[in-house]
Design a protein around this nucleic acid. Structure first.
Length: 795
RNA sequence: GGGCGGAUAGCUCAAUUGGGAGAGCGCAGCCCUUACAAGGCUGAGGUCACAGGUUCGAUCCCUGUUCCGCCUACCA
């Protein structure tokens, strides 16, 4: 037992972490006979570094897992990272661009190799930051969503959903990011109100009887119009219905149609219909008989294509808009322009404005899955805490739309589907004629320069299958081409036996693999002991921002493939904001780096601050002053320990729970034991109900204001033997030590480092505080509490 | 457009069954008392957003209003 220094040195925190990890204390095997308790962590992106949200999230999980572990549970906190398809691809691409390298010149295989290399270099950063925070995860079980095992789970799930008819391909408008060059799901689009212009344009009648005025925010898509629509009941346009107009900037004529969806009160009550670039218009087009034609005018990269008119082809969509407005003005077809605020969708990864785009994509039919997932929450097989979020959950689930899962990027789980170019469709067309490939740059074949073509054409021109796929930039496979879905690469076409198969180039939405996380990480589809022991997991702790992205989908997939919920409780924690309540963001420059705070105040003080702030259902406005305050709290505890340590001078062994020493205590002693019991009870109850802040407040109040301010102060006369009562002196020392040691254990889940440090310097039982029992004392001494309250009030 | 949450001391926030309004920081005053000045003690400071209603009694329950934040939506 060494003399404690006057100030606690939090700088040495990590020496304990290293010991814990080395000794295997984080593994559930330390309590082999305990009841199982499991948390799987929300996997952070490999590209990420620890932000306040992660820190809060990890702190709360660590508190629960340490608490349960001390209660003797076979506690597993399973960590890992997410490959984060689009985000990671963007990061690596940006880095390559900095070196003047385009991923297309590298090719798919080489690019993926680069990403893995990048992951090897930087992927552990956030893991190390979690360790710095004190996270007691079982790192021996750490997983990555692109692991072989997890990839197998992904393939298994895809194939089974496909066989069940719950996965299908379809041609329809999707959210397309022209910068990331991929489809996005509805959730991956962030809407933001932007001020634009509502432009009133005259569309001349074909019969020369005048014109109809339509209001639009997107004049650049006029060449893609298939109609003008009015409300069927709109008397202003009664005589126009069925007539045709001359579409400005083109030579085409389009009809005036009716549709219930048109709002007569908006604009002029007449709206241009552009099925290929607007979701509403797509719906309208499909309601018409025959369907209105889809005329795309914008390319994958957001530039205009030939159908937009020679003059505009190649222009960016927003440059084109300006140009079109100028031209319409020149033609005197603009009646007026009006400022107009409306909500515009942006890519959640790169913030580019999304473009509705007609493509063939893979979808999951979610309706049935969602119904089961709704039931699980309604039947209380899953508890969402705070309960208010369950309303959001129901609202979203009840209106769920099919989930677009294919992404036109390279980093991710490639879809386990192949196509045979030599089979025919039901209509008798060759598949090879329905697969269209364009190359990133022209290929030279026997002096010919080839830029694009159908698969059949490219083969006829002498290109080998490998060359075609390796150099492909975009691959468009018609909806009617029969997919061959398989867990392993099929050696040959099951229909015609051809050995020349094309693999679907798309990868799956990152959230597809995350949805399997609670069971794929435990070893599924193998039937492992971990699955048996730890599924369903006990609680999922996460922010509300991924309630739909992730939580809802885990519930759907868990129910579907494990036939049981993935977790019993979902605890939704707050968002960490800055002092003014603003969301932290790099662009606003208000980001507080958790690592900076940890270096400045220590992980314990930082964790405790987050915990004390973590009231249910309320966002956190983070203030650094609080961290300072809890650093002082640590010092308080440290010095209380110093006081006790110097006075027991090694002569006292740790008194055990039920000893007769208690009977010799004076009123303050009986009182503090009773208060300790109440505090332990309060903390256990609070943690059971996920009231983290109440638990933190309880231990803080007890240690500082009851133990230090009152009991230690009252014990001094006794300790210094002013009372000439040796027996009482010894009992009081016992009591001081007992309370201190119990307090450390109560505090350990919140402040793992300082508690271990102090615990090791005082008499204790066991190897580490993190495996010592968590106090749960129930016996109160009401008489002593009442007596003491008189003393305290007399002050 | 629909839904949800918040408004309590100068600042950041607590208060789970309707009866006593609290903490941290900050502020004022007094204390270097042998664990801790990163501390101790004392104190000031709030018609618990506003207006009604229910009740013996409302920060808490109900209605409406204002302001703020968020989620969601097919606002051309």
């Amino acid at each position: 037992m060494s003399e404690l220094e006057k100030n606690y040195r939090f700088e040495d925190e990590m020496k304990w972490y290293k010991l814990w990890e080395k000794e295997g204390f984080f593994r559930p095997e330390v309590n082999p006979d305990g009841e199982s308790y499991c948390i799987v962590t929300p996997p952070p992106n490999v590209t990420g570094s620890l932000h306040m949200g992660h820190a809060l999230n990890a702190t709360l999980q660590d508190i629960l897992i340490r608490w349960k572990r001390m209660h003797g549970y076979r506690a597993l906190w399973l960590p890992g990272t997410d490959h984060a398809g689009i985000a990671t691809q963007n990061v690596v691409e940006r880095e390559l661009t900095g070196k003047g390298i385009d991923r297309h010149t590298l090719g798919r295989e080489e690019f993926i190799r680069k990403v893995w290399q990048w992951k090897g270099e930087y992927g552990e950063r956030i893991i190390n930051q979690l360790k710095r925070l004190g996270a007691s995860c079982d790192w021996s079980r750490q997983r990555f969503t692109l692991d072989e095992g997890l990839s197998e789970a992904v393939r298994e799930v895809f194939v089974r959903l496909f066989q069940d008819g719950l996965i299908y391909r379809d041609l329809r408008l999707i959210n397309w990011c022209p910068r990331c060059h991929t489809a996005l799901s509805d959730l991956e689009v962030e809407h933001e109100d932007l001020e634009g212009k509502l432009i009133y344009i005259r569309y001349p009648m074909s019969d020369g009887t005048g014109y109809i005025v339509v209001a639009t925010t997107r004049p650049e898509t006029i060449p893609g119009d298939s109609a003008v629509a009015v409300h069927p009941e709109d008397s202003r346009y009664k005589d126009f219905i069925g007539k045709r107009i001359k579409l400005p900037l083109t030579r085409r004529e389009v009809p005036i149609i009716t549709d219930e969806m048109v709002d007569p009160k908006f604009g002029t009550g007449a709206v241009k219909v552009t099925p290929a670039h607007d979701f509403n218009d797509e719906a309208m087009a499909r309601r018409q008989t025959p369907n209105l034609p889809f005329i795309p005018v914008i390319a994958e990269d957001g530039t205009m294509i030939d159908t937009a008119g020679k003059k505009y082809a190649g222009l960016d969509r927003y440059e084109c808009r300006k140009k079109v407005i100028e031209d319409l003005k020149e033609l005197d077809l603009i009646e007026k322009e009006q400022k107009h605020v409306h909500s515009i969708g942006h890519c959640y990864r790169c913030k580019t404005i999304i473009e509705p785009f007609s493509t063939v994509q893979w979808y999951v039919n979610t309706k049935g899955l969602a119904e089961d997932a709704i039931k699980a929450v309604r039947d209380k097989r899953i508890h969402i805490i705070p309960e208010g979020w369950s309303n959001s959950y129901y609202a979203w689930m009840e209106n769920i739309r099919d989930w677009c899962i294919s992404r036109q990027i390279w980093w991710g789980h490639q879809i386990p589907v192949w196509y045979c170019p030599y089979c025919r469709t039901e209509e008798g067309q060759h598949h090879g004629d329905l697969i269209y490939i364009s190359f990133h740059k022209s290929l030279n074949v026997g002096g010919d320069s080839i830029q694009a073509g159908t698969y059949t054409e490219l083969r006829l021109r002498g290109l080998a299958p490998e060359d075609i796929m390796k150099n492909a930039n975009t691959v468009k496979i018609d909806k009617s081409v029969t997919p061959i879905c398989s867990r392993q690469e099929p050696g040959e076409c099951p229909f015609c036996g051809s050995k020349e198969l094309l693999r679907d180039p798309d990868v799956l939405d990152t959230w597809f693999s995350s949805a399997l996380w609670p069971f794929s990480t435990l070893g599924w589809p193998e039937n492992t002991e971990d699955i048996e022991t730890f599924y369903p997991t006990n609680v999922l702790i996460t922010g509300f921002d991924i309630l739909f992205f992730w939580v809802a989908r885990m519930i759907m997939m868990g129910l579907k493939f494990m036939d049981d919920v993935p977790f019993r409780d979902v605890y939704i924690h707050a968002l960490v904001r800055d002092l003014k309540g603003q969301k932290m963001s790099k662009s606003k420059g208000n980001v507080i780096d958790p690592l900076v705070l940890i270096d400045k105040y220590g992980a314990d003080a930082f964790r405790f601050t987050l915990t004390a702030f973590a009231a249910q259902g309320r966002d956190i406005k983070f203030s650094e002053e609080r961290v300072e305050g809890y650093k002082n709290f640590i010092n308080k505890l440290w010095n209380a320990s110093r006081f006790i340590n110097t006075n027991i001078v090694g002569e006292e062994a740790l008194p055990s729970n039920g000893n007769s020493w208690r009977e010799d205590l004076d009123t303050p002693g009986r009182w503090i034991l009773s208060r300790l019991a109440k505090t332990s009870d309060d903390i256990n109850t609070a943690l059971t109900e996920y009231r983290f802040n109440d638990a933190a407040t309880a231990i803080y109040q007890f240690i500082w204001h009851e133990f230090c301010d009152w009991y230690i102060e009252l014990s001094k006369p006794v300790i210094y033997n002013n009372t000439n009562n040796d027996a009482l002196r010894r009992t009081t020392l016992k009591c001081l030590l007992y309370i201190l040691e119990s307090s450390l254990r109560l505090l350990h889940p919140f402040m793992p480092f300082v508690t271990e440090e102090v615990w090791q310097t005082i008499p204790h039982k066991g190897e580490t505080i993190m495996l010592s029992p968590f106090p749960h004392y129930k016996e109160r001494d009401i008489e002593a509490e009442e007596k003491m309250s008189y003393i305290m009030e007399a002050g």
